[in-house]
Design a binder for these strands. Structure first.
Length: 258
DNA sequence: ATGACTGGTGTGACCAGA
């Protein structure tokens, strides 16, 4: 079972690339972030035509998350991150597909830091850590997939010294990520490729992709039953080089069949 | 330190992204 996370930076602007990539790679589950579309404008017909069922949580202009499942319908288990009734941003959706619980998240960027946006990032992170705690001990596989907007270590950025004051790499952000990991999650890409340089995002500015000036900020975290089935993990980085590409590339794992 | 690039919105000296 191949499970992918892909920040599309507008589902409408990216639809031709998305359909091409779905056809080329035939993933089983796809977690999408930054749909940038209202709920009723999600292109469900085109995705059904391509062979995917879907659930999504849209929002006008910004944010928005979706889960696609090839040949079946995701069974929704959660919509919106619990813990703050005043948080109306569409950044979390969760579903059960083929016996695997899949969380799709879009953690706030948090810049500029310090400031109210950074405070929101950290409070969202705390709510996510609390929710993740309720999932980690399941006897069945759980995958937390998404755009975390977290550079976990200096190995995950082309020039760490330039990012120390950025919301993606600040001490508070990395500490929160470490506390999440300490619950017992495994970073799938890093587990299978401990010493490789792996990026999932390249800025649109300054020819960042051409210079390979990237960041690793899209992650798939696994509980123990999911880790037992982990076989492969990689980034479809060539998709970042296509015309009209998102600034993120699809990032994926493969779990063995039961 | 700034701006460069892209998308949404809607025609803003706009905002947000990372």
């Amino acid at each position: 079972m191949r499970i992918v996370t892909y920040n599309v930076n507008s589902i409408h602007a990216r639809l031709p690339n998305l359909l091409r990539w779905l056809d080329e790679t035939r993933p089983d589950v796809v977690c999408l972030q930054e749909l940038k579309t209202p709920q009723d404008k999600f292109p469900i017909d085109a995705l059904r035509e391509a062979g995917f069922g879907a659930i999504w949580h849209g929002q006008k202009s910004w944010n928005g998350v979706a889960i696609l499942a090839r040949g079946c319908e995701p069974v929704e288990t959660q919509r919106g991150l619990p813990g703050d009734p005043e948080d109306l941003q569409s950044r979390y959706i969760e579903a059960e597909i083929g016996g695997v619980l899949i969380a799709c998240l879009y953690l706030p960027n948090g810049n500029p830091a310090p400031g109210p946006k950074f405070d929101f990032k950290l409070s969202w992170f705390e709510r996510f850590i609390a929710h993740a705690q309720s999932l980690i001990d399941r006897a069945t596989p759980v995958v937390l997939a998404g755009d975390y907007n977290v550079i976990p270590t200096g190995k995950d950025v082309y020039k760490p010294e330039r990012w120390v004051d950025d919301a993606l790499f600040r001490e508070e952000t990395r500490t929160a990520f470490e506390r999440l990991m300490a619950q017992g999650w495994t970073d799938a890409l890093r587990k299978l490729h401990p010493n490789e340089t792996i990026y999932t995002f390249w800025d649109y500015f300054r020819n960042a992709y051409g210079r390979d000036a990237g960041l690793r900020i899209d992650h798939l975290l696994l509980n123990a039953p999911a880790l037992m089935r982990l076989e492969r993990a990689a980034v479809d980085r060539h998709v970042r080089g296509w015309e009209k590409a998102s600034d993120h590339a699809p990032t994926w794992i493969e779990l063995s069949d039961t």
